[in-house]
Design a protein around this nucleic acid. Structure first.
Length: 220
DNA sequence: AACTGATCATGT
DNA sequence: ACATGATCAGTT
């Protein structure tokens, strides 16, 4: 897949993203010489990686923002006819150390969400990936109210991890931020501390933004 | 229709 | 194993 050079300024990045508005993914894929999968079942990351390449994100699996120099994280978000998100948004994995010493201010969740460029991808479930179209991008910086809501959930969820109360963790907790499994399959595991302070195998957890929250962010 | 738990691909 | 990119698909 071809990849553009990284943008050198925030306005340049925003202009590039805006220029993609209305473009079907099949056309973008053709420009970038990327084969279009028949469906996303075995290509779940294809859309995100395609838009990364189009905007000149560094890509790869490094723990840095997509546009490191600009401090911007890129997120594609599937939206329905009303412009509302169809899915939750993965933020980051829930590291065991992050539950202890880190404050909300220095947490990975907050750093990840400091500045996000949302790129909506319009299309219904089951629609061929190439037929989906890129929507108008939105650069988001959490408002004080949004930040406070995220902080509250993060603290509650982090306390469960820090306390080793792993069995109490499930996707129903958190008003805007939730913890859910984030793994390759059911056999995948991570080492975590239980209530007794013993290392145990656990399903790896990830922080996700609820679709309801993202709906507000997108102004839909 | 929304939501949660499970899953898929790739790179380091 | 864990980071990146997410969506699938069964249940409620």
């Amino acid at each position: 897949m071809l990849r553009r050079a990284p943008p050198t300024s925030l306005p340049e990045l925003e202009a590039r993203a805006a220029a993609l508005t209305g473009l079907p993914l099949a056309r973008l894929a053709a420009e970038l010489d990327s084969p279009v999968p028949a469906d996303l079942r075995r290509a779940k990351g294809w859309v995100g990686q395609l838009v990364e390449a189009a905007l000149g994100a560094e890509g790869g699996s490094h723990p840095e923002p997509d546009f490191d120099a600009l401090g911007v994280e890129l997120k594609t978000i599937p939206v329905g006819r009303d412009g509302g998100p169809r899915e939750s948004t993965f933020v980051c994995t829930a590291p065991i150390e992050g539950a202890f010493e880190a404050s909300w201010e220095t947490s990975r969740v907050r750093r990840k969400l400091a500045r996000v460029l949302w790129v909506p991808i319009a299309g219904d479930r089951g629609e061929p990936p190439g037929a989906r179209t890129i929507g108008a991008p939105r650069l988001w910086v959490p408002s004080p109210v949004e930040d406070a809501a995220l902080a509250g959930d993060w603290l509650q969820l982090s306390e469960l991890i820090a306390g080793g109360e792993l069995h109490r963790i499930h996707g129903r907790l958190g008003a805007v931020l939730q913890l859910r499994p984030k793994a390759a399959n059911a056999a995948d595991y991570a080492w975590m501390l239980d209530e007794e302070g013993a290392w145990v195998r656990s399903v790896p957890f990830g922080f996700y933004l609820r679709a309801r929250f993202t709906r507000g962010v997108l102004g839909a």
